[in-house]
Write a protein that binds this DNA or RNA. Structure first.
Lengths: 124, 124
DNA sequence: ATAGAACGCTTGGTATTCTAAGTTGTCAAG
DNA sequence: CTTGACAACTTAGAATACCAAGCGTTCTAT
């Protein structure tokens, strides 16, 4: 999955992970795959993965915790953006509505989880 | 010259070089000592020096030129100001949080689906 | 004298191997 | 059931080796 571009592998991996973080595909607080897992996925040695991780750690995008894993930072450093303040309040309104919808969904899923998981525990 | 503080050696060296750069002791355009020289000076292996150089390179304080050396950048980047919320990036932050929430919901729903569907199959 | 080969130095990237240290789950002994 | 040992996982740091590539000097052959 790496190579072809001349760009060094550890930077390709760092780019890939960085874009996953900034796109939200890797959400804040989420754990990255382990270095061994990443090494297998990109088919590179551990040192390349460690170099990539090191870059993102220097960029303060992630935080590594010994024994646990590497996690996306909760408050990400600001990324360059070009959001125009035109119609900003409209965006904010839609955002509020979406947040309410997401919170509602979260509550309903939590209810389902309580039911399903308690049933599973009982039958385990 | 390194150790005593618990702070890893490559960061100590990076700190040292960084302060030399920011104090002007290493002027813009000036060449750093070679990695072998630095390794001897700090009494560490090449890998530690390379890690330190790598940190400063990621910070864009220095630029390495193959075959020549490592040089202090002419136009130094401003010191990183973290966690700046200028109101406009507030939207971005909210968006990132929402994506996290949605991602989390998707995972939880998928887990529930797996449980419920497998139980249904088992009792069919 | 000049062109070119050769050598030594440099950074950069990758791989491998240790060690250290923290977390987590398992499992057995009490 | 609780506690403690232990094994298996994780990241982090460090040392070492190897190779590629660029640069500069030197030495050599023409």
């Amino acid at each position: 999955m790496v190579e072809k571009t001349g760009r060094p592998g550890y930077l390709q991996i760092a780019d890939d992970l960085r874009s996953q973080i900034q796109s939200g595909k890797l959400a804040p607080g989420a754990a990255l795959p382990s270095t061994a897992e990443l090494g297998a996925r990109y088919d590179v040695s551990a040192s390349v993965v460690k170099s990539a991780i090191s870059v993102l750690r220097t960029e303060k995008l992630i935080i590594g915790q010994q024994g646990k894993g590497v996690f996306v930072r909760e408050q990400l450093p600001a990324a360059p953006s070009e959001a125009s303040s035109d119609g900003e309040s409209e965006l904010l309104r839609q955002l509020v509505m979406m947040r309410e919808a997401v919170q509602d969904l979260g509550q309903r899923v939590a209810d389902l989880e309580k039911i399903v998981l308690s049933e599973r525990k009982g039958s385990d």
